[in-house]
Design a protein around this nucleic acid. Sequence first.
RNA 1: GGCCCCAUCGUCUAGUCAGGUCUAGGACUCCAGAUUUUCAUUCUGGCAACAGGGGUUCGAAUCCCCUUGGGGUCACCA
Length: 473
Amino acid sequence: MQESVVTRFAPSPTGLLHIGGARTALFNYLFSRHYQGKFLLRIENTDLKRSTKEATNAIYEGLNWLGLTWDDEPVSQVSRKGRHLEVAELLISNDMAYKCFCTPEELKIMREKSISAGGFGGYNGKCRNVDASKHPPNLSPSIRLKTNNEGKTSIKDLIQGNVEVSNKEIDDMVLVRSDGTPTYMLAVAVDDHDMKITHVIRGDDHLTNTFRHIQIYQALGWKVPYFAHIPLIHGSDGKKLSKRHGALGIHNYKEDGILPQALNNYLLRLGWSHKNHEIINLKEAINWFELKNVGKSPSRFDMDKLNHLNAHYISSSKNDKLLELITPILNDFLGFNIPIEVKKKVLLAMDNLKVRAKTLNELAEDASIYAYNVPIRIEEKALTVLDQSTINMLNLTRNLLDRITDWTSEELEAAITSVVNENKVGFKEVAQPIRIAITGSLKSPSIHEVLANLGRDTSLERIDDFLRRYKTS
RNA sequence: GGCCCCAUCGUCUAGUCAGGUCUAGGACUCCAGAUUUUCAUUCUGGCAACAGGGGUUCGAAUCCCCUUGGGGUCACCA
């Protein structure tokens, strides 16, 4: 690989950036960065009916969120229509393409006939050798490639290895539609050539198209780029990934509180590996990424593993960064903007919070205990573990806490321990009532940590309020 | 259906190209134990795979063939 590497990601903006596309983009990005090459973006919007501006923006946003920065301006495929038609004309004048006047009805019958005869349903070349003088005058034709139908076409795929097919299996494909617009087959070949793409890395579903692209390259006398077809991602049931498998779009994962680092790491390990490494940051990925380490077989999407990686990236993130990320979630969750005092408390508590959250949403939910005002909502099942004696114990503890002047985690722990010792009860008997009173829940980080982070006033206020509500009986 | 591709624990994979070091390694999940005031974290241990059948070879997860299973693709979509 003497020439400098140029890769591209070429999504069609007919939907959102999905998980498979994101991985294709990631692999293209890593490969080009590994070789200090370029990573280009091309929007394949030749299907005007289905392409939308919103989808294009969603692709940009998705890539930006993942941190997959591309070089140069994105290329809009429709804007290159003139060039595509110019190439089609060139092919006609070189006798490598021809005008086809067959109607859709004719083509349909042709296809059915071919299939019933055991064929693959390709075009039979009816218009291939019709002289221009015999062309009907008032019909607009499509343009088809005069495919080489002798011998074989082979791909030296960097992932799949050598793949070849008999040229009999490749029919004269349409390059320009009868409405004068270029097809994807033509556009992709011309654009990859003009953009000087050296390595075409794309989903395995394009493998059979590649034979067609190569025929176009050969008809034009162009150098064929390297190809690398990465296996597809399936749903957890092994079937093609679709809406019923849950989240498909990248934005869904963002909304579910997944960190982009976790998604990148997960996607990277789906189909690619480097020794026994599991936790791999972007810099390491760039260093290590080679196409030869990409597997050949499709893989299944596993949410458990993504969550595990996400938990890892959350607990190793900086506290202030996490606060910044969960603030909007928290505001949304609570229905009001959390004040600065609450943010300070959450930041103090973050070390204890972040080790137990699998997603940012869980983190926000766990952090929400610092934001409530009395009365705290008490979970029903929390109340079931309380009885009069534990409530009395809480009352005792409250009076002791009230006398603490140095409201620190250490002092608080000492105070709770002294209640435990003096009353000869288990730690649990004392700790759980406090936990319920100040968090409304049976689970939280260490109780003295929560008390310390919550602050003296808020802690006592919550306990008093709780006692007021549940003491009498 | 034609053509093409793929096949190691439930899942992601190492090992396959250059056959022996593989009674097959790691990770996720699950189970058990330790730590522990709850929930987690962390730590220790455990369950679990070379799809099947033929070859080649002194020797095969690794090479060849067949079968089976899975996937992709067959548009004037991309």
